[in-house]
Amino acid sequence: METPLAGNTVLVTGGAGFIGSHLVDALAPDNEVRVLDNFSNGTREHVHEEATVIDGDLRNPMDIQRAARDVDVIFHQGAVVSVSESVDAPRATNEINLEATLDMFEQARLEDARVVVASSAAVYGHPVEVPITESARLEPTSPYGVQKLALDHYARLYNDLYGLETVALRYFNVYGPRQQGPYSGVISTFLEQARADEPITIEGDGEQTRDFVHVDDVVRANLQAATTDAVGTAYNVGTGTRTSIGELATLIREVTDSSSRIVHRDPRTGDIRHSVADISRAGDRLGFEPLIDLETGLRGLVSSSKRTTAAAGADDDAAGQGGDTPEPVGTGE
């Protein structure tokens, strides 16, 4: 992926995570990239070999200071992304999702560094109408949504009050390789069920709709946000295309060549009925245009998974042959 950024010193918080690691991959060939991560969710093996890894915690201002010293751009991806965890522990998640972000903004002021922050469609709550514009009603329904909305507002205020160049990106339903864990989304769940030829289980009638955006397109939006003159505002990052969960289940069954049945169970309490982004602001001001349609993205994801599985199997076979285990090279700290 071509990047408009080159020759910069860049910090990616959460750079070992799903979106962050893909962003690091795009940046590393042409920039000096640092990754700040505590690896509570991220995977060290996903970090580009040319990036400098700082094993630290966003809640520690000294770790932020160490990671952000003399940087030009900060991509702030580090967060607790679980809505349910924010409901169970609002104060603890607020420390990471909001208070740590304020520390990041303060450090960015000292460094005169641009900050691109990961916000979320969760700021909209239950939308009154779709597609959702950035000027739509903002009534989040979870502590996570409130935290992202506050982060969103702080990004604007730091630009207005202090002249700090900031951009907030409101992600819709992001999917792609390396998405893992219990909160990785409906696509990961459906793919796992389809590969095992287990029933693909839809919560509710399947008519609810979402805007599924590939991680490569999200990375592209971040790179454009890092170079735009249109700072101090928020942008939706999606595709502008509405897909029902029933359509998604059928498509996943097709791309995996699965014999899974599609079954329904009771709807999830409080589930949003319809969500799709209006991305015209991002198109007009950032030049953002999503390039990967859902079927293409899903087929790529299935192929990527097969390659990973095959490589793991080859490693297992090699390990079973005996012989000396080579010394690790260049693992670093």
Rank of each mutant, 00 (worst) to 15 (best):
S40C: 10
N41I: 15
G42M: 11
G42T: 13
T43G: 02
R44P: 06
R44Y: 13
E45S: 15
H46G: 01
V47E: 06
E49W: 10
E49F: 09
A51P: 12
D55L: 14
G56P: 14
D57Q: 01
D57G: 04
L58A: 10
R59E: 13
N60P: 03
P61C: 09
M62N: 11
Q65L: 09
Q65A: 13
Q65F: 03
R66A: 07
R66G: 00
A67C: 07
A68C: 01
R69S: 07
D70G: 07
V71A: 01
V71S: 04
D72N: 13
V73N: 02
V73Q: 00
I74D: 04
I74L: 02
F75S: 00
H76G: 02
H76V: 09
G78M: 08
V80F: 02
V80G: 00
V81L: 04
S82R: 00
S84A: 11
S86G: 12
V87L: 06
D88K: 03
A89R: 13
R91V: 15
R91Q: 09
A92V: 10
T93D: 06
T93N: 09
N94K: 06
N94T: 15
E95P: 00
E95M: 03
E99M: 14
A100D: 09
A100P: 11
T101F: 13
T101H: 02
L102M: 08
D103N: 12
D103H: 12
D103L: 11
M104L: 15
E106I: 06
E106Y: 01
A108P: 07
R109G: 07
A113S: 02
R114A: 06
R114G: 06
R114S: 02
V116M: 04
V116T: 07
A118D: 03
A122G: 07
V123F: 06
Y124T: 03
G125W: 10
G125M: 10
G125L: 11
V128C: 00
E129K: 05
E129Q: 05
V130M: 04
V130S: 06
P131N: 03
I132H: 03
S135R: 09
A136V: 07
A136G: 04
R137A: 03
R137P: 01
R137C: 06
L138W: 05
L138T: 11
E139Q: 13
P140F: 11
P140M: 07
S142H: 05
S142A: 13
G145L: 01
V146S: 05
